[in-house]
Design a protein around this nucleic acid. Structure first.
Lengths: 342, 342
DNA sequence: TTGTGGTGTGCACACGTGTGCGCGTTCGGA
DNA sequence: TCCGAACGCGCACACGTGTGCACACCACAA
């Protein structure tokens, strides 16, 4: 930290007390115009840069938001953070970012570090914390918002913003039924049990509501210790239920892997089998074929979280937010009749 | 910022001065074992969380690194930031992130904000600052490292980490020549004139060195006001030089657009034309066909930048770093003979 | 002349932490 | 017994900023 000019330095040069300098620069009313003018000019000339750290200490607020993210390089979370930042920028907040892979200990450590830095609030994306950790965090008193957390919780300082996973599954089911598919599969992931269950439930129950028999809905799940994309590849290879003409995947990563798996197997997508993903990753547009998917409003997710966190910091209360995903039709899903003709 | 327990509170409860508490917690030597034990226990029991803001003020260093990034959602920069964070995490630093789109004013504003926060150093990724702004920043004295900046500069506190763009272009040329291509094109972008020039120069001069005539090297450049991916699409559509069998693109975004453009035009990649990109975006793996590209070591870029910045902060001097890209062969490029046979 | 009210400025403290210096105590050796 | 050294701890200050209160000054009216 380079030694920089302080208001004391300016005060000395201007022949006044640091109090006057502080007031002049912050636009206090009862300062004579000439003194204010001289101080402002002097500050500019001396290259004064206010010390936000000292201000934070004095004001008891840091104007900083802590964000805990599982993987910095994940484009999905990148867009969420973009949404968070957009709101922060308007309110003059800064973003303190900490990575913490999918590990409870690491996440807790990251949160503790942010609390040491006295952030005004914390946003945790993709949290996998258990009930005991959450209780512990609640005691710390920091306002927190969890985005797409796998658990729900009841507390005054802890809130969540989630996507409606059940609705997402239902939308996928509606889409495939509308296309005429009669025998379908769900490719799940055990790594995020909460959302996986809801997506599959929304999918299956809606299919049943449309009159499909449960015996015509096949389910598979990849191993927990491999990457989703590899899991998708494996499940596509392993799928040997005759007559299955459509697959709904837990997320786009699995779907992209499935596309590769079906291609390697010689099964044409979408002519032989339709594939639907979830998330709308940036790369879903550029896969072959471009992926039909249930799109999450990623930036909105971040914006909403930040907005609600600001409310929490302000001392007011907010409700948990649930955002609805939307169907994005591309080329990896097609009507059954057309598929059979091909 | 919630009111939290301070060392004064602990001191009061322990019946000692805050000095003793501070020393006990920081592992000072000349503190009796029993007092230290009691204080540590008390601190734990009272839920003491050190105030990093006060520590920063006292120690005159914030243990915080500022990062200015053009677009939070850009997966390329996501990986770079991941590299930065990896090094930061080992040294206990935190990351203060500010977004600033491709705009000199915004970038300067972001840097000023970080300086107010008294970050120990700043990393600017994808800077587009002009010479006058850079001179201005130099005067501010903060150690800074620029990643893939479009300009070079000479200063003690400013350093750069860049990819060897010329070498990247040369590698692409070597690859296409080795595949037997005799007439090729370069799809450029005017938005980043510095790196665009170097990539094209490395590409063209190497081709010439391999004996190719300049008249057999076709160049195009997209408009500055559209997205790269759309530019790639347009250039692919517009390409009507007969006999061109390979295209090297300024980056993967243009290459992905070109893939779509050629597909729409009915030109098969790679059978009729080979396409090579630059960057190795995550989605380059999942395009159709998977994209051959000149891969940038993105995480290494971030790690190196952070490493050099730490050296700069430590008061030592470092040289500018230049990293070499590598060829990543996928399916969008193929030998000429095979292409003609197909 | 005195009282009143407004204006401009400074003193002193607060925020939470770390540390140089000094003081009192204890301990060991001569 | 005495003295120096080591030990254990607190005072007071520093870091840079903001603010409640008090004070001096001026203008104006009574």
């Amino acid at each position: 930290m380079v030694r920089r000019v302080s208001i004391m330095d300016i005060a000395e040069r201007a022949g006044v007390s640091h109090t006057t300098v502080s007031r002049a620069l912050r636009g206090h009313t009862r300062i004579s115009a000439v003194v204010r003018g001289r101080i402002i000019e002097l500050a500019d000339q001396m290259g004064y840069v206010p010390n936000a750290i000292a201000q934070s200490l004095q004001q008891q607020q840091s104007c900083t938001i802590g964000v805990v993210i599982s993987d910095m390089a994940d484009p999905f979370w990148g867009e969420v953070v973009k949404g968070i930042d957009a709101v922060c920028a308007t309110s003059g907040q800064s973003l303190l970012l900490h990575a913490a892979a999918h590990d409870e200990k690491l996440q807790i450590t990251a949160i503790r570090r942010l609390q040491r830095r006295r952030v005004d609030g914390i946003i945790v994306v993709d949290s996998q914390l258990g009930p005991s950790e959450i209780r512990q965090l609640e005691a710390s008193g920091s306002p927190m918002v969890f985005i797409n957390s796998q658990r729900t919780f009841e507390s005054t300082s802890l809130r969540s913003v989630t996507i409606d996973n059940y609705a997402g599954g239902a939308i996928a089911a509606d889409h495939l039924v509308a296309l005429g598919h009669q025998k379908v599969a769900y490719f799940g992931s055990p790594k995020r049990p909460g959302s996986n269950l809801k997506r599959s439930l929304g999918f299956i129950e809606t299919l049943v509501a449309h009159g499909l028999q449960r015996s015509r809905i096949f389910q598979d799940e990849c191993a927990a210790d491999i990457a989703d994309i590899d899991g998708g590849y494996t499940m596509a290879q392993a799928l040997n239920e005759p007559g299955v003409t459509a697959v709904f995947c837990y997320n786009d990563a699995i779907a992209l892997g499935a596309l590769a798996g079906f291609r390697a197997k010689g099964v044409a997508v979408p002519h032989k089998i339709s594939v639907v993903g979830f998330d709308d990753l940036a790369m879903a547009r550029y896969s072959w074929p471009p992926l039909t998917t249930i799109a999450q409003p990623k930036e909105l997710l971040g914006q909403t979280a930040m907005h609600n966190l600001a409310t929490l910091i302000g001392g007011a209360s907010v409700a948990d937010a649930v955002l609805v995903p939307s169907l994005l039709i591309r080329d990896s899903s097609t009507p059954l009749s057309k598929g059979l003709r091909a």
